[in-house]
């Protein structure tokens, strides 16, 4: 128990330790659209789940989500997250519906730009998950959450990390993913991205290719803990981007929800 606590504490502190990029798929970064600009980010997350000790769910979840991130000032933005979920239990029981709406306020409170592309940034985020979802996918409570994010980009290397605490106070009828039970939840993520192309930027604004990996961790106050390792491929043009990740578990101690077999995420990002 003590070692688990220390592990969680260490990983929750990663924004301060690595404090480091180009934005990865699940790791929140202290970047936001410029004032009056909008980023629309559709993303599809596919989860293959297998039974754990106390939860015998075996099946898949497909989450189709859209984030709308609007720049309020150079340092702040407001983000809306809407998603629709399709939960299939061994191809027999199928339920689908909208999940609770998430409203997030992001604020970058520290920024040190030390080169043309080089930067170190720290951000704070806070928000509410509102009970607007369909009957199968709502917690029926308003869930406050807050967290910290950090980013470090130097040349072709970029690292981001984030930790978000969700004060969960209600559960879904059939909780299968982290954060859906009546247990507080910390999502901790860290990512590294390497720019493979272009080797060096030039006088024109051109697209870039990145590869990297992300660690996605979830700890819940009923002691369920899980960490996934997800390689990332990211293509980023000046006004849009494409991302794909494949996540596999590297540490699982999950009893009250199903274990993750693997996850696949496909996403697009558009800047207006």
């Amino acid at each position: 128990m003590k070692s688990k606590f220390l592990l969680i504490l260490f990983l929750s502190m990663t924004p301060f330790l690595s404090a480091v990029a180009q934005q990865a798929t699940d790791t929140l970064a202290p970047t936001m659209p410029g004032k009056g600009n909008l980023v629309v980010r559709p993303i599809f997350n596919y989860y293959k789940l297998k039974p754990s000790e106390q939860n015998l769910f075996s099946g898949t979840v497909l989450e189709s989500a859209v984030h709308f991130d609007y720049g309020l000032t150079g340092d702040t933005s407001i983000m809306f997250h809407i998603s629709e979920k399709r939960q299939n239990e061994d191809q027999e029981t199928r339920v689908n519906g909208f999940t609770d709406l998430k409203v997030t306020f992001k604020w970058r409170f520290y920024q040190d730009d030390f080169g043309p592309v080089d930067t170190f940034r720290l951000g704070f985020l806070a928000g509410l998950e509102l009970p607007t979802g369909g009957s199968e996918f709502t917690s029926n409570t308003t869930v406050p959450f807050f967290g910290l994010s950090a980013m470090y980009v130097e040349g072709r290397h970029g690292v981001t990390s984030s930790a978000v605490f969700n004060a969960t106070d209600g559960d879904l009828d059939n909780p299968v993913l982290a954060g859906e039970k009546d247990a507080n939840h910390i999502a901790f993520n860290a990512a590294y991205l390497y720019r493979i192309k272009p080797e060096a930027y030039g006088q024109e604004l051109v697209a870039a290719w990145y590869i990297g990996a992300e660690i996605n961790g979830d700890w819940e106050s009923d002691d369920d803990i899980e960490m996934l390792l997800a390689p990332i491929l990211l293509y980023e043009a000046p006004s849009w981007a494409f991302e794909v990740t494949y996540g596999i578990p590297i540490y699982e101690d999950v009893n009250y929800r199903p274990e993750t077999d693997y996850t696949i995420s496909l996403g697009l990002r558009f800047l207006f």
Partner: peptide, 15 residues
Amino acid sequence: AGMGCPKCANNITLV
């Protein structure tokens, strides 16, 4: 300074 990625930098164009 600080234009970490092409899409980030394009924010300057839009503003």
